[in-house]
Design a protein around this nucleic acid. Structure first.
Lengths: 182, 182
DNA sequence: CGTATGTCAGTAGTACTGATATCG
DNA sequence: CCGATATCAGTAATACTGACATAC
């Protein structure tokens, strides 16, 4: 990575801005982490996409259910992509859909008991792996990195599309500025 | 993103470590950036993978040539993946392969003049886009983020597999610990 | 011979687009 | 009727695996 950035500075000094380094290093970091995550999930035959949805559902709290739209808002995927993942989770018996009584277009995706267990096991495994990977990293530094990244994300406009938590019969009928809907 | 992390803290407080937030936020950041990069490259019909290789070749300095192995070391891809990309660049007339006189197994991948132009144009466009995106971010903060990420990457073992720069007839015959070779 | 380098075909995993259905 | 929600089929892009060729 340093080799690469040195080349950048040597060859294109007029374009040497700290932002670009953030870009490259963030990409590299998530590349490395995703690689490890894949291995980490192998025992459950879960893909990273599956894991993300399980994770979102589990951290949503009991009864571990959200509408596809909520998942979409949190993971920034298209509705088509979400459908695919839910289908897979349903075939694996980890999640199930129930129609939304108050809105016939939508449905609730809920973790099955098995799904909840699998989610927790996988999350715990991934947490342990991360802990091990970050063993050589000062927690202070990690904290700082997280805060800085957060600030940058907000500055870049990473949005919080109006939370709609557990069984939101009480919410107003529409969200604020939902992203890609197709 | 904050919504998601709040759920994490509420539901799985025993697993609340700053590292995990770094992981998620870095992933999100590169997700957002890659999305914009794709749009940015559309005018040239370049894929992100193409762009990465063009970029690596351009920042390698004149005469803008590297062996597939060098590219692999810098981008952390398998040799098969590199072959595909080089094939595509060659078909587009942006790069060309010449056999390595001193090692019959390998070859040198060099940017054509057109390739060099396209690389520079695309890099400049991407730089301008990033500059615009980061307009609201304090450069100090970006600098800090970059440094912190760098430290973390090094701690995670992101390696520098023995640089092999322009026409390295003078290098020892083998590298140190090359990653995935297949 | 064993290792290193690279190519190629086939494939997995990700996620988008466009078409469609349905409901508010 | 328009906009929102979701599903599905088809497709693009990424990149890996395994088989192979060749050369050190």
């Amino acid at each position: 990575m340093d080799t690469v950035m040195d080349g950048w500075r040597r060859e294109l000094p007029e374009l040497d801005r700290p932002e670009f380094e953030v870009t490259r290093r963030a990409a590299r970091l998530s590349q490395l982490l995703e690689e490890v995550l894949s291995e980490c999930l192998a025992p459950w035959t879960l893909t990273k996409a599956d894991f993300n949805v399980l994770w979102i559902l589990r951290t949503a709290g009991a009864p571990y259910e959200l509408r596809p739209t909520d998942i979409r808002n949190r993971l920034l995927l298209t509705s088509g992509g979400i459908s695919n993942i839910i289908n897979r989770l349903e075939r694996m018996g980890l999640a199930e859909r129930t129609p939304d009584p108050s809105d016939g277009r939508s449905s609730w995706v809920r973790l099955t008991p098995t799904g909840t267990d699998v989610a927790e096991d996988a999350i715990r495994a991934w947490a342990a792996t991360q802990e091990q990977m970050f063993a050589g990293v000062d927690p202070q530094l990690a904290r700082q990195a997280s805060d800085t990244l957060r600030t940058i994300l907000i500055a870049l406009g990473d949005r919080e599309p109006a939370t709609a938590p557990a069984r939101a019969h009480d919410l107003p009928p529409h969200q604020t500025a939902p992203p890609r809907t197709t």
